[in-house]
Amino acid sequence: MKRYLLFTGVLLMFSCGNNNSKKHTNDWQVLFNGKDLEGWTPKIHHHEVGENYANTFRVKDGVIQVNYDNYDSFNERYGHLFYDKPFSSYHLKFKYRFTNQWMEDAPSYTYRNSGIMFHSQDPKTILKEQDWPISVEYQMLADADDGNPRPTGNMCSPGTDVTYNNEIDPRHCINSTSKTYPWDEWVNGELIVYKDSLIIHIVNKDTVLQYSKPTIGGGVANRFNPSVKIDGKALTEGFIGLQAEGQGIEFKDILIKELE
Rank of each mutant, 00 (worst) to 15 (best):
85 K>N: 08
217 G>Q: 11
244 A>Q: 07
31 L>Q: 05
120 S>N: 01
98 F>T: 00
182 P>Q: 00
210 Q>V: 12
233 K>T: 14
97 R>D: 00
148 N>P: 00
216 I>N: 03
81 L>D: 03
157 S>I: 06
74 F>E: 04
44 I>C: 08
226 P>I: 12
249 I>K: 01
246 G>M: 06
62 G>D: 07
143 D>P: 02
132 W>E: 04
258 E>Q: 10
258 E>R: 11
8 T>N: 13
126 I>P: 00
160 T>K: 09
40 W>T: 08
90 Y>R: 09
251 F>Y: 12
61 D>P: 03
35 K>H: 14
203 V>C: 02
199 I>Y: 04
152 T>D: 02
91 H>S: 13
103 M>A: 06
153 G>K: 02
139 Q>Y: 04
71 Y>M: 08
199 I>R: 08
15 S>G: 15
226 P>R: 11
98 F>N: 00
155 M>T: 13
235 L>C: 08
256 I>T: 04
120 S>V: 02
7 F>K: 15
211 Y>W: 11
233 K>S: 13
91 H>Y: 14
182 P>H: 01
160 T>H: 09
54 A>L: 05
149 P>K: 00
186 W>C: 04
40 W>L: 09
190 E>T: 06
127 L>S: 10
52 N>E: 05
31 L>I: 11
156 C>R: 03
143 D>V: 00
160 T>D: 08
151 P>G: 00
99 T>L: 04
129 E>N: 12
51 E>Q: 10
145 D>Y: 01
124 K>L: 10
93 K>Y: 09
86 P>R: 09
107 P>D: 04
249 I>P: 00
103 M>K: 06
